[in-house]
Design a binder for these strands. Structure first.
Lengths: 238, 238
DNA sequence: CTCAATCACTTGTGCGGACGAGTGGGAGAA
DNA sequence: TTCTCCCACTCGTCCGCACAAGTGATTGAG
């Protein structure tokens, strides 16, 4: 029985209206059908219609005027997507060959500083080699404080099929809140060069993942060969 | 009788919760009182409390988890400052020594493609070497289509004291709208290495500056030595 | 004709109730 | 002891209803 869940009704109403706006059926400036009419058309309660309309208004699709009606504004423009290598790494599912090493090691100085622990404190280091078309395309190491790793599988060599973020949230309710990312160009370390099979310059990424309280959940360091990776970013000029 | 209207109850509830979050009474990560408790405390219906909480969640103050509770995230921050080397370069004032070369040259292929002109079309190349503490810290080249450069000083060797952006806006009313930026790690070209005085890997930045209509105003290419530059970025996890 | 009251329509806000589903802990069975 | 089931608690959604308040056209008194 793989019954797919129907989306909530207010979302269905929203979607229908959005589609009509995009299709031009409701043109900018037009008045939408009144709440009462929508109630009849979609056969739902007014609560539901109102919630759909108010959400659309908050998202900028429409404008509502007390006593007059709801009016189409058009598709709201959203901030363009950005490249976030730090998050992508934590999001990524792992495959069997990607995880090469998981150990408990003394934290190197720069990692310890980012994790907020004393130098040489034991931490979990989880190293992975990402591949594209059979060739290694990146070397990534995830560093976890012991408190974070405790009771999870991040300190076990098996691949995490749903990615680190999902895993931490599922088993320990740890939620990612924000990421601090530092990026530079450097030569790969000898070890990275071997794993990558190339001594060419790499993008060095150092990302710190925090929870809502600001505690550091993990640090990610990665080497992305410059000839394979290009980070793109589009932004508005204020 | 100038009775001020009381704000709606859901807004009062929102405001109260926001204030408690700002005051630290509800700290990030904390669980908020349950809907039922808030109903009792504020003496309103659940509809009202739910609306307040859902609005707060949409605005990023809190996070709601089905079956668990509502949790404080903190004051929603405006998008954090990002590093935008592309824009910084155009914004920067030039000093006497920084501009090394201004020529009219045939556009190299990759630049021509970004400018949207045919290969080998003549364009203006404006090269600069940025310095920090007397040492060269970056090599930047700005490429302008002739139509853009016409009537401006960007094709003249004198330094632009207020930066390229200001200059273009002042003399030709050209306004920057958005920037597309591509970033990678590479070895410096022979020329760049000489100017920088070092063969170490560099961050290669290629930025395209557009106006509101999408036309390309200029392309910027830069080499930022990895040992001198680190780009930092902080972002919220959705 | 002018103007004000009225009325039908719109959205804004609010309540109480209902049922569903996810979570987590504790009681009880194995 | 360990595991499973159950139950209390959470939020998610939806309904019907009610009344307030803004808007604009119609009506009717003057």
């Amino acid at each position: 029985m793989s019954m797919d869940f129907a989306p909530p009704k207010y979302a269905q109403v929203m979607k229908a209206i959005q589609q009509r706006i995009e299709a031009g059926e409701y043109a900018p400036g037009d008045m939408l059908p009144s709440e009462t009419q929508l109630v009849r058309e979609f056969a739902v309660g007014r609560t539901t219609v109102v919630r759909a309309l108010q959400t659309l208004a908050m998202q900028g699709w429409i404008e509502r005027e007390h006593g007059r009606g709801s009016f189409v504004k058009g598709r709201p423009d959203s901030p363009p997507d950005r490249v976030r290598p730090g998050l992508a790494v934590a999001e990524q599912a792992e495959s069997t060959e990607s995880v090469t090493e998981v150990e408990r090691v003394a934290a190197p100085r720069h990692i310890a500083r980012l994790l907020g622990v004393a130098e040489r404190t034991p931490v979990i280091a989880r190293r992975r080699v990402a591949k594209q078309g059979g060739r290694p395309s990146a070397v990534e190491t995830l560093w976890f404080p012991l408190e974070v790793a405790l009771g999870t599988d991040v300190d076990k060599p098996g691949p995490l099929r749903h990615g680190v973020r999902q895993h931490l949230q599922a088993v320990k309710h740890l939620r990612f809140d924000h990421v601090t990312e530092r990026l530079t160009a450097r030569n790969p370390t000898k070890e990275e060069a071997e794993l990558l099979g190339s001594p060419k310059p790499v993008l060095g990424v150092l990302a710190t993942v925090h929870d809502a309280a600001g505690s550091v959940l993990l640090v990610m360091s990665a080497a992305l060969p410059g000839d394979l990776h290009e980070l793109q970013d589009v932004y508005q000029v204020s």
